[in-house]
């Protein structure tokens, strides 16, 4: 099951990264994307780490999220036919965070704010068309380095 979108927001619900894979026809409008963020934030902020799993079935989406310090990393897949894929997406989120962590040397919210471009480069290396395209941390880091030297 491909990702519908990938989202990163802080604990106050401010979005920091957003990547939609536009799998619906027509794709979501700007205002429905915004609406999604607001509603997902409402969902997440009411959950306690200790008492809840990292998965929410919500509308026709399955939301897989993890909180890292002050940031939520969130992905959403179609509820239909997404059996048994939650854990691997959770690992994918972790992989993404690990990579960002190396790219920015101990990543924090400010890095996402000031280094947005680089973050999207990383996301583009890991995901494509909503699927995980590259799962090797080393390969992604290597490619991100290459890109930096391109200009």
């Amino acid at each position: 099951m491909p990702l519908q979108f990938l989202l990163c927001m802080n604990l106050q619900g401010k979005p920091r990264l957003m990547k939609h894979f536009n799998l619906t026809t027509p794709p979501l409008s700007h205002s429905s994307k915004h609406q999604l963020q607001v509603e997902i934030y409402r969902l997440l902020s009411s959950r306690e780490h200790k008492q809840h799993s990292n998965f929410i079935e919500w509308k026709d989406l399955k939301i897989i999220y993890k909180r890292y310090a002050g940031l939520y990393f969130i992905c959403a897949i179609d509820l239909d036919g997404s059996q048994d894929e939650e854990l691997i997406y959770l690992s994918t989120i972790h992989l993404l965070v690990e990579i960002l962590d190396e790219v920015f040397e101990n990543v924090c919210e400010l890095d996402l704010i000031f280094g947005g471009e680089k973050c999207y480069a990383v996301i583009d290396e890991v995901f494509s068309a909503g699927e995980v395209m590259e799962c090797s941390k080393a390969k992604v880091l290597q490619r991100v380095k290459e890109i930096e030297l391109l200009d």
Binding site: K19, S29, L150, D151
Partner: peptide, 20 residues
């Protein structure tokens, strides 16, 4: 220039509303 081209592509994917 790569960084300019890639910024262009990023802008398309984020700023433009393809819903209509």
């Amino acid at each position: 220039t790569y960084s300019e081209k890639s910024m262009g592509y990023l802008a398309i994917s984020l700023l433009i509303d393809f819903s209509e």
